[in-house]
Computed example of a mutant assay.
Amino acid sequence: MYSFATYLKKNKQVGAVTGINNAYVMVEGIPEVKVNELVSFENRAIGLAAQLLPETVRVMHLSGPVPALGTQATLTRELMTVKVDSQVLGALLDGLGRVVQSGGGSEEQLPAASLPIDGRPLPLNRRRMVTQALETGVAIVDILVPLARGQRELVIGDRKTGKTEFVRQTMLSHMFNGGICVYGGIARRAADVNTLTTYFQSKGLLNHLVRVVSMATDTTAACYLAPYTAMAVAEYFRDLGREVVIVLDDMTLHAKYCRELALLARQPPDVTLILGIFFTRIRGLWNEPACLIKVPLLVCPLPIRSWVICRVISRPT
């Protein structure tokens, strides 16, 4: 991105911060801003326009120091995108798509691209029928409840019941067959990420894996956007005709951050503020894998009690 002065000179529209509410910053004076547009602050902070109000704009703080009251802000007329190329293979990205740890990349030179994190799904006439099986490497699953390429799968169960091991085995089997895996970690511990990295590094398959991880210490915005960033990376390889498995771990925590952001935005306490968010707020995210023709599996480890609560609370009245 360019500097604040460059955007100000280009757009000639300046606003000011009138309020601060944890993850959100209230900005007044930029009436031409659009939802999901990036906002630049004079203290080098970057925000995302999340909600348009009659007099102000509620901006989600993404990176940089938190703007103080009176800090100037201007438009960028740019949407939030993720830059992807062959070097992301084996790399570790944060929830905003920035490279934290570089990887070995791919010997094959892939074209660079900047993809929006909130891309539109493919139309129905461009989707294929689900016809090919996906080998998970777990014999009992492949025989009794086989999964298919292009299918979305929710892995549910109580703690310590083998969800993580099943997901890891599925990723391992897919990468052994030459596929690519995108791991989207939401509010993970550093120890968990290191364990995952060491495991696939010992198998010599780290260059078939893209890790998009928001740490538990990251901002609320980074944790909220992590699965969308991971989905954009998966779409990049899908469009290149590669076989991709995307894993989101776990969506319970994503629902928690969605609820936190909704409460900070003073939204009414309805179904979108509880774990029923799986069936309301992020249904757009769930629709994405259906259009990922080459993405065979969406795996979301989720405690079964939370999932049952979702089903009960989100049931139509």
Rank of each mutant, 00 (worst) to 15 (best):
N36L: 03
L38W: 09
V39W: 02
S40G: 01
L48W: 05
A50D: 00
Q51H: 10
Q51S: 12
L53T: 13
L53Y: 03
P54E: 13
R58T: 10
R58S: 04
P65A: 02
P65T: 05
P65H: 07
A68C: 03
T71H: 07
T71G: 13
Q72Y: 12
A73F: 01
T76I: 04
T76K: 00
R77D: 01
M80N: 07
K83L: 01
V84M: 14
V84E: 13
V84W: 05
D85P: 13
D85K: 07
D85H: 09
S86N: 08
Q87G: 08
V88T: 10
V88L: 06
A91K: 11
L92V: 15
L93E: 00
D94L: 10
L96G: 06
G97L: 00
R98W: 07
V100S: 01
Q101F: 11
G105L: 00
L110N: 12
P111M: 01
P116I: 10
P116G: 10
I117W: 09
D118K: 01
G119C: 04
R120C: 08
L122N: 11
N125F: 15
R127Q: 05
R127E: 06
R128E: 13
M129I: 14
V130L: 15
T131P: 08
G137A: 11
V138G: 00
I143A: 14
